[in-house]
Deep mutational scan, measured.
Amino acid sequence: MAEQVALSRTQVCGILREELFQGDAFHQSDTHIFIIMGASGDLAKKKIYPTIWWLFRDGLLPENTFIVGYARSRLTVADIRKQSEPFFKATPEEKLKLEDFFARNSYVAGQYDDAASYQRLNSHMNALHLGSQANRLFYLALPPTVYEAVTKNIHESCMSQIGWNRIIVEKPFGRDLQSSDRLSNHISSLFREDQIYRIDHYLGKEMVQNLMVLRFANRIFGPIWNRDNIACVILTFKEPFGTEGRGGYFDEFGIIRDVMQNHLLQMLCLVAMEKPASTNSDDVRDEKVKVLKCISEVQANNVVLGQYVGNPDGEGEATKGYLDDPTVPRGSTTATFAAVVLYVENERWDGVPFILRCGKALNERKAEVRLQFHDVAGDIFHQQCKRNELVIRVQPNEAVYTKMMTKKPGMFFNPEESELDLTYGNRYKNVKLPDAYERLILDVFCGSQMHFVRSDELREAWRIFTPLLHQIELEKPKPIPYIYGSRGPTEADELMKRVGFQYEGTYKWVNP
């Protein structure tokens, strides 16, 4: 592979701008107003304001973009700056750019259920340069409990009458099928589907988006991507930290609602779906819905739930269990780990287990898709061969690698495990991989909904998990304890083995 010439960040961002501006969906010269509902909250200060700053800094926003914060707290732009700027990672050389960014910011205080507050917000936006005809993007960085009041008031008082209007809704989209349907029906009564952007930030990850290209742009994968060759698929999300004093919020939802029903299920769809007619948003989402419709409700015998306990040999936070978090209700049975087996009941995947695993306070930070292939028929190497695996590593250190057998150097035919490896950090030294939120917010500006969740996708996802969630809430089974920093409950490994996964433990990928 030829040595790549190092590029400056300015040059890299210039390439990104060229890609972005050559499309006809990006209205570079139009006025846009980006409204952050819930501007005083954690999500706004840690993710949304920093993301908008990065896009502005790199010249990736339309030229005439204004940012308006809205929340109940009586704040000023200076207050917003004070709480969000520490997350910007701005350099001293960017000081003038930073001043320009905050000059485009404003803030309006108001209630979430008060019509007069929204009329005041609308008047404020109209007073901005060309504000009355601007395109408006409303980001709901809010708890779902206020979605209905907020969307109703936005629709009645704050819509642009000339430009387009788009609304970005953060997960969780309800707690179960019934609450999700209620919320979807409410929002759909106010906005068209092409105006609604239900954001799952995992769909903005580079390697998640790469799944489609790997599958449908490489001839070698087509013939082997089926039940005849693939023994099982494992989708993993692991965090090495616990709730760390923020367990009160987590306890309301648990690990299945927080990660599995959305992030992991979306990745499953991209692995299992048929080739779409095109890369058009609805063509892709149509195929994802077909996959979900082929999955039956989760069966309790295919589920393992766990909850982390303190590690007596650990240090600091590792010595504390979930129930030691003062914000967690006493005696909570909320799971911090889950392993679930699903089956896609169609011709391509009949009988292939899709194993979804996620948890907190585990032994490493990792998100990946792992396809394990069947054993080689007619073994001539005296059971020395391990199964081939194709691994798409989402985070950290984005990579695609194939675990395969090669001859060990020497005189004899002794096979050993090795890999074919594409590590993004080595291959793409001159490429700026956008943060997931950067990519998705740019998608909203461009009107691309491919990486957002459609209402029928959402409904099918909740259909699969709601009976299990209701059973857990009714019966309150005690989750299996696992030690902070471990791989999780051993019962999860036993479940995976029972459905056909072979864990060798003899080879570990190392970032080159």
Rank of each mutant, 00 (worst) to 15 (best):
88 F>Y: 03
182 R>V: 08
132 S>A: 06
186 H>M: 10
230 I>V: 10
182 R>Y: 14
200 D>Y: 07
52 I>F: 14
79 D>C: 05
12 V>Y: 07
73 S>A: 04
117 S>G: 11
108 V>Q: 05
4 Q>C: 08
124 H>P: 00
243 T>K: 11
143 P>G: 12
69 G>Y: 00
227 R>T: 09
248 G>W: 12
224 I>T: 12
217 A>N: 06
89 K>N: 11
167 I>M: 13
218 N>H: 01
223 P>V: 02
175 R>H: 14
205 K>M: 04
224 I>C: 10
233 V>I: 06
55 L>P: 01
152 K>P: 07
193 E>C: 03
90 A>P: 04
34 F>K: 01
52 I>N: 00
241 F>A: 15
98 L>W: 02
81 R>Y: 04
78 A>S: 10
136 R>I: 03
221 F>S: 13
82 K>C: 07
91 T>C: 07
10 T>D: 08
38 G>S: 03
102 F>W: 11
141 A>D: 08
126 N>G: 10
79 D>M: 05
52 I>A: 11
229 N>F: 04
118 Y>F: 14
15 I>H: 06
60 L>I: 11
225 W>D: 00
33 I>A: 05
235 L>S: 02
254 G>T: 03
50 P>Q: 03
160 S>P: 02
118 Y>T: 02
123 S>M: 08
127 A>E: 09
20 L>V: 10
227 R>Y: 04
87 F>M: 08
235 L>H: 01
156 E>G: 10
196 I>F: 01
253 F>E: 10
142 L>M: 09
8 S>F: 07
161 Q>C: 04
217 A>Q: 07
113 D>R: 04
187 I>M: 08
115 A>P: 13
235 L>K: 01
2 A>D: 15
47 K>N: 05
211 L>G: 03
77 V>M: 06
236 T>W: 02
116 A>M: 11
73 S>C: 09
204 G>T: 15
184 S>Y: 08
53 W>P: 00
147 Y>T: 15
240 P>F: 09
41 G>K: 06
249 Y>A: 14
61 L>Q: 00
184 S>C: 05
132 S>D: 07
160 S>Y: 02
89 K>L: 10
139 Y>K: 00
28 Q>G: 07
25 A>D: 12
186 H>W: 08
174 G>M: 07
135 N>H: 07
43 L>G: 03
83 Q>F: 14
84 S>A: 12
159 M>A: 08
155 H>P: 02
58 D>K: 06
23 G>T: 15
103 A>I: 08
231 A>E: 10
121 L>Y: 00
132 S>Q: 12
18 E>K: 14
143 P>L: 09
101 F>D: 00
126 N>E: 14
181 D>N: 08
69 G>I: 01
245 G>V: 09
220 I>F: 13
184 S>G: 07
159 M>R: 14
179 S>Y: 04
191 F>K: 00
170 E>A: 11
136 R>P: 01
56 F>M: 07
120 R>G: 10
175 R>M: 12
162 I>A: 09
195 Q>E: 09
2 A>L: 08
132 S>W: 11
65 T>G: 01
224 I>W: 04
101 F>A: 00
8 S>L: 10
215 R>S: 01
181 D>K: 05
86 P>K: 05
91 T>L: 12
49 Y>G: 01
66 F>G: 02
126 N>V: 06
199 I>E: 00
147 Y>S: 14
226 N>S: 13
50 P>S: 04
2 A>P: 12
180 S>E: 05
97 K>I: 08
129 H>I: 10
184 S>L: 10
55 L>A: 13
136 R>Q: 03
211 L>P: 00
32 H>T: 11
37 M>E: 00
242 G>L: 04
125 M>K: 00
207 M>Q: 12
238 K>E: 15
90 A>E: 03
109 A>N: 08
14 G>L: 04
48 I>R: 00
127 A>T: 06
128 L>N: 03
51 T>H: 14
90 A>G: 04
93 E>C: 08
168 I>A: 09
256 I>M: 09
159 M>Y: 10
228 D>A: 10
57 R>V: 03
149 A>Q: 05
133 Q>Y: 12
149 A>P: 07
55 L>V: 02
119 Q>K: 10
176 D>Q: 05
188 S>W: 06
140 L>C: 06
40 S>Y: 04
119 Q>I: 07
39 A>K: 00
35 I>E: 00
203 L>I: 15
8 S>C: 05
116 A>G: 08
167 I>W: 00
53 W>E: 01
144 P>R: 13
132 S>N: 14
191 F>N: 00
74 R>V: 09
13 C>N: 05
173 F>V: 03
128 L>A: 04
221 F>W: 10
118 Y>N: 00
94 E>N: 04
242 G>P: 10
209 Q>G: 13
4 Q>D: 15
163 G>D: 00
110 G>T: 02
106 S>G: 03
85 E>A: 06
42 D>Y: 14
152 K>C: 12
112 Y>G: 09
229 N>K: 01
78 A>P: 09
20 L>P: 11
214 L>Q: 13
140 L>A: 03
82 K>D: 05
212 M>F: 13
204 G>S: 15
70 Y>D: 01
172 P>V: 07
6 A>Q: 09
214 L>F: 05
115 A>W: 06
124 H>N: 06
193 E>H: 02
87 F>P: 01
25 A>V: 07
200 D>T: 12
56 F>G: 02
112 Y>L: 07
3 E>A: 03
176 D>E: 08
149 A>Y: 11
142 L>F: 12
251 D>N: 10
121 L>C: 02
256 I>R: 01
16 L>V: 05
134 A>F: 04
255 I>Q: 10
189 S>F: 04
28 Q>M: 11
119 Q>A: 10
59 G>Y: 02
50 P>K: 06
9 R>I: 04
12 V>D: 06
204 G>L: 13
244 E>Q: 12
159 M>G: 13
46 K>R: 11
164 W>Q: 05
246 R>M: 09
147 Y>P: 06
2 A>V: 10
40 S>F: 05
58 D>V: 05
38 G>C: 03
138 F>S: 01
237 F>P: 01
247 G>T: 11
150 V>K: 00
255 I>W: 01
50 P>F: 00
139 Y>S: 02
59 G>Q: 05
150 V>W: 00
136 R>M: 06
108 V>K: 02
21 F>N: 06
68 V>M: 03
10 T>I: 06
170 E>V: 08
140 L>G: 00
118 Y>C: 03
100 D>W: 03
225 W>G: 00
78 A>M: 12
38 G>Y: 00
170 E>P: 12
19 E>M: 05
74 R>A: 12
17 R>T: 02
225 W>F: 14
225 W>P: 01
230 I>N: 01
107 Y>M: 06
198 R>D: 00
234 I>S: 15
223 P>L: 02
144 P>T: 11
170 E>G: 12
142 L>R: 01
65 T>N: 02
15 I>D: 07
147 Y>M: 14
236 T>I: 02
40 S>R: 03
120 R>C: 10
221 F>A: 12
217 A>H: 04
232 C>H: 10
9 R>C: 06
190 L>I: 09
242 G>C: 07
239 E>S: 09
236 T>L: 02
108 V>F: 07
101 F>I: 00
238 K>T: 15
92 P>E: 11
230 I>T: 03
172 P>K: 05
39 A>R: 01
33 I>K: 01
232 C>R: 15
215 R>H: 03
170 E>K: 09
218 N>Q: 00
96 L>Y: 14
39 A>F: 01
244 E>A: 11
185 N>I: 09
177 L>F: 07
184 S>V: 14
124 H>R: 07
128 L>E: 03
3 E>H: 09
207 M>D: 14
108 V>I: 09
246 R>V: 11
183 L>N: 09
178 Q>I: 07
248 G>C: 11
70 Y>L: 06
43 L>R: 09
19 E>I: 09
119 Q>S: 11
201 H>C: 06
70 Y>H: 04
